[in-house]
């Protein structure tokens, strides 16, 4: 599996992604979309604990993180991931509107927020360096 570097050509060397969502149908759809757009989905997680464990294990470049999860919410997971020293880029997603979360999205340390319905490869890339 290719490891993304800053020298990678986005179209050539796919960035690795971990998809975290408790809805299997969204995970499946997101995987299909991201892979079609040149990302490499290296893993999926259904809750916060699994997300923390898989990040530790897989070192993805990007964590696509649903805010509402059964155990921990996306903000808490973001905080823990950054505290662990591992620092993948984190993009929060939700089927709710960004405004529902106030300034939590901008202050939690995540790269950004994409509404689930508007998820595209381009939207993700826009948030990444």
């Amino acid at each position: 599996m290719a490891v993304c570097t800053t020298t990678c050509d986005d179209d050539v060397v796919p960035r690795t992604v971990l998809v975290v969502d408790d809805h299997p149908s969204f995970r499946a759809t997101a995987r299909a979309l991201l892979e079609a757009e040149g990302f490499s989905v290296v893993g999926e997680a259904a809750d916060g604990a699994e997300a923390l464990a898989k990040t530790e294990e897989l070192h993805p470049d990007l964590v696509l993180l649903d805010i509402q999860l059964p155990d921990l919410d996306g903000f808490e997971i973001t905080r823990r991931l950054q505290a662990n020293g591992a620092s993948p880029a984190i993009v929060l997603v939700s089927s709710r509107d960004a405004a529902d979360y106030g300034d939590l999205i901008t202050t939690c340390g995540a790269r950004g927020f994409v509404p689930k319905g508007e998820l595209t490869g381009a939207a993700l890339r826009a948030l990444l360096p």
């Binding site: 809805h23 149908s25 969204f26 759809t29 997101a30 089927s95 319905g117 595209t120």
Partner: peptide
């Protein structure tokens, strides 16, 4: 609503966009 229909509609929206691109 959030967990059910909305999720499905979100997936649907993403899938349709994907289909469109392909």
């Amino acid at each position: 609503l959030h967990d059910g229909a909305q999720q499905r509609l979100v997936s649907l929206s993403v899938a349709l966009r994907l289909a469109q691109s392909k």
